[in-house]
C-alpha cells in the first residue's frame, strides 16, 4: 500500500491515532492498535462508494413501497432480497401468493411476477416504464386483485368440488388448474375441464374407466344434459347429470392427508411400486387414459384399517400373478397384498 492511499484511509482519524500513540506502552502495542484501526477503517469504507449509495436509496424505496402496501401482505422475502412474495386474500377468503422478482439496482426495466392463475403459462414481465420509475408494487397488486375478482365464480365451484368430492387429479390442485378428475367409485372417473369465464355452464367432460360402466354414464349424461341448470352449483348439476351422489374421499386417505411430514407422502404412494405416479414404461399401452403413465394410485383396499392405495395397473399385475385370484365376469378378485382382505379390480 502506498503512503498516499494509507493517508486517504486514515483521513479523519488523525486525532485518534495521536491519542493511541501517546498511550501506547511499547512500539509493538501501538502497531497492533494501528493495524486494528486501519482494518476497521478499510472494512467501513464502501467498496465502490458510488453504487452503494445509490442502491441503498434504491432498496430503501423498495422497502417503503412494501410498507405502503401493508406488511401483513408480505409473506416472504428471500435472504438476498431478490424475491419478495406477497400474499393477497381474495373476496372468497382464498389466499394467493404472488412471488415478485426484485430487479437489481440499475437494471430496473421490468418486474417479473409469477401469477398462479388459469390460462397463465410462465411468469409475467411488467415493464417498469408504466410504473413511474418505482417498482410499482401497489399497481401490480391492484391489477392482480382485479384479476382475482374475475375468477371468484370459478374458484367457488372448484373449491366446492375439492371439499365435497374425491378428486384424484390434480394431486394438489393449484389455482391455475381448471380441470379435475373426480372418482365416481368402481374404478370409474369423470374428468371435467371448466371454462374459467363461465364456470356454471356444462364443462367439457369425459368418462374414464371400464368400458361398460363408462358407456352407461355417457348415456345417462347425454339424456340429462338438457336439464343443466346454470344457476345451480356445478357439483349439484354433475350429480343430476349422472343421477348419482358424488362419493367423498375415503376416510383413510383423508386422515393420511392430515398426517404430518413424510408419512403423508408414504400413504399416498402405491403399496406395490412405492411411487406416486405410475412409471412410464408400464402405462398407456392399452388406452393411455386410466392406466396411462403418470396415473396416481386410485385403487384402495376397502378394509378400513388397511386402506392401502395401489395403481390400477400394479394391483392388476399383482392379482394376475397370484394363482388364487379368481376372475368373475371380468372382475379380478384376490386379496390385498398388505392385509389379505378381499380386493377386486378390473383389467386396466
Amino acid at each position: 500500500m502506498v503512503d498516499g492511499e494509507l493517508l486517504e484511509v486514515l483521513k479523519g482519524c488523525e486525532e485518534v491515532l495521536r491519542d493511541r500513540l501517546s498511550r501506547s506502552s511499547s512500539a509493538e502495542s501501538f502497531l497492533t492498535d494501528f493495524k486494528d484501526l486501519v482494518e476497521s477503517m478499510l472494512s467501513a469504507r464502501p467498496t465502490s462508494s458510488n453504487s452503494t449509495e445509490w442502491s441503498g436509496e434504491y432498496y430503501a424505496a423498495v422497502v417503503e413501497e412494501l410498507r405502503a402496501l401493508g406488511l401483513h401482505r408480505l409473506h416472504d422475502v428471500d435472504t438476498d432480497f431478490e424475491e419478495v412474495t406477497l400474499q393477497i386474500i381474495d373476496a372468497g377468503s382464498r389466499r394467493h401468493l404472488l412471488p415478485i422478482t426484485i430487479p437489481r439496482p440499475g437494471e430496473l426495466r421490468h418486474l417479473t411476477v409469477r401469477m398462479d392463475l388459469p390460462g397463465r403459462t410462465g411468469p409475467a414481465k411488467i415493464p417498469v416504464s408504466r410504473t413511474g420509475g418505482r417498482l410499482g408494487l401497489a399497481e401490480v397488486v391492484q391489477a392482480f386483485e382485479k384479476t382475482l375478482e374475475e375468477f371468484q365464480p370459478l374458484w367457488d365451484q372448484l373449491d366446492d368440488l375439492d371439499v365435497n368430492t374425491w378428486i384424484v387429479e390434480p394431486d394438489q390442485p393449484r389455482r391455475s388448474h381448471t380441470y379435475r378428475r373426480i372418482a365416481l367409485g368402481n374404478n370409474l372417473y369423470l374428468q371435467i375441464d371448466i371454462d374459467p369465464t363461465s364456470p356454471l355452464a356444462p364443462p367439457a367432460y369425459k368418462f374414464l374407466g371400464a368400458d361398460r360402466a363408462a358407456a352407461k354414464c355417457r348415456e345417462t349424461a347425454r339424456k340429462n344434459i338438457g336439464a343443466w341448470d346454470a344457476t345451480n352449483l356445478l357439483r349439484k348439476n354433475i350429480e343430476s347429470l349422472l343421477e348419482m351422489t358424488l362419493p367423498s374421499r375415503p376416510m383413510t386417505d383423508a386422515s393420511q392427508r392430515s398426517a404430518l411430514g413424510s408419512h403423508e407422502m408414504e400413504g399416498k404412494e402405491c403399496g406395490i411400486c412405492y411411487s406416486r405416479q405410475l412409471p412410464i414404461d408400464l402405462g398407456g399401452d392399452i388406452d393411455g387414459e386410466v392406466n396411462g403413465s403418470g396415473a396416481v394410485p386410485d385403487q384402495v383396499c376397502r378394509n378400513g384399517s388397511c386402506g392401502k392405495l395401489f395403481h390400477h395397473r400394479c394391483l392388476y399385475e399383482w392379482l394376475r400373478s397370484v394363482p388364487a385370484t379368481r376372475v368373475v365376469f371380468g372382475a379380478w378378485h384376490g386379496s390385498c397384498p398388505y392385509c389379505s382382505a378381499v380386493i377386486t379390480t378390473t383389467k386396466p
Binding site: S275, P279, D281
Partner: peptide, 13 residues
C-alpha cells in the same frame, strides 16, 4: 430393469 422395480428398489436401498 423396469421402472417399476427401479423406483421401489431405490427407496428400499
Amino acid at each position: 430393469m423396469s421402472n417399476l422395480s427401479t423406483k421401489r428398489l431405490t427407496k428400499e436401498l
